[in-house]
Design a protein around this nucleic acid. Structure first.
Length: 256
DNA sequence: ATGACGCCTTCCAGGCGA
């Protein structure tokens, strides 16, 4: 079974790209983030034509998450409890024998911006929420975490320590989540590799290797024991057939 | 030092992203 996460940076703008990717990679379950459209504008029919069901938690213009799946999914949680005012950023479903959550974690903007403490509070609420469902054995949470887990995951390495995405406060929140028994599937399989999932559109960052690894798939031990490979699909960060890519690459994992 | 690119929106300059 192939599970995936992808921040698409605008579903409507990315539709041709997403269809190309679904046909090429044939994932079974996909968490999408940054849909940037109203739920009534979600193109269910286009996905059905490709054999995918969709559960959507979205809002006009900003944020928005969804789960695509080959077999129908049942929604478990729409929105992070207590933090609904921060936007449509969490959706958890039951699908294919898994509990599968997709998250678009807040950005925080800058260390001195009011969004930064809101980001930390959002992660505290995420930890509390995940602690409440930790009894679910086969569980995945994937998404755009907007935290760089470790120096290895930033193109600047430890020179980025202390800057936004790389502060001790953010990394402590990330650790509070992994401390619940959730493991970064990519880092588990490849402890010393440096691959990125996001590159700035500006300044040729992609071709200069100036990226971050912020798009993650975390799993409980029952999932970790099944994971055989994880790929950060940088082919789909490139312009393809005249279409512009998201600034994030898809990430997918193959499970037994 | 700054902006750089691309998305969104009561249509178009401005907010936002990471």
């Amino acid at each position: 079974m192939r599970i995936a996460t992808w921040n698409v940076n605008g579903l409507r703008a990315r539709m041709d790209f997403i269809i190309h990717w679904l046909k090429s990679r044939a994932p079974d379950v996909v968490g999408l983030q940054e849909l940037k459209l109203s739920e009534e504008d979600f193109p269910h029919d286009d996905f059905r034509a490709l054999g995918y069901h969709a559960v959507v938690h979205a809002e006009k213009s900003w944020n928005g998450v969804a789960v695509l799946s080959r077999t129908p999914a049942e929604a478990e949680t729409r929105g992070l409890p207590g933090r609904e005012d921060d936007g449509a950023r969490l959706l958890r479903v039951r699908v294919a024998g898994l509990h599968f959550a997709t998250v678009y974690c807040p950005n925080g903007k800058t260390l001195d911006h009011p969004d930064f403490p809101r980001k930390l509070a959002w992660f505290d609420a995420l930890r509390d929420y995940l602690a409440g469902v930790r009894g679910d054995a086969a569980s995945v949470i994937g998404g755009d975490f907007n935290i760089v887990p470790a120096a290895l995951d930033a193109w600047q390495g430890d020179a980025a320590d202390g800057s936004i995405f790389c502060t001790a406060e953010e990394r402590a929140r990330y650790r509070s989540i992994t401390d619940l028994g959730l493991t970064d599937l990519y880092r588990h399989l490849y402890p010393n590799e440096q691959k990125f999932s996001w590159w700035d559109y500006r300044g040729g960052a992609f071709h200069r290797g100036m990226g971050l690894r912020i798009d993650l798939l975390l799993g409980t031990p029952a999932v970790v024991s099944r994971v055989r490979s994880v790929e950060i699909d940088r082919e789909y960060r490139k312009k393809k057939e005249g279409n512009i890519a998201s600034d994030h690459a898809p990430v997918f994992a193959d499970l037994d």
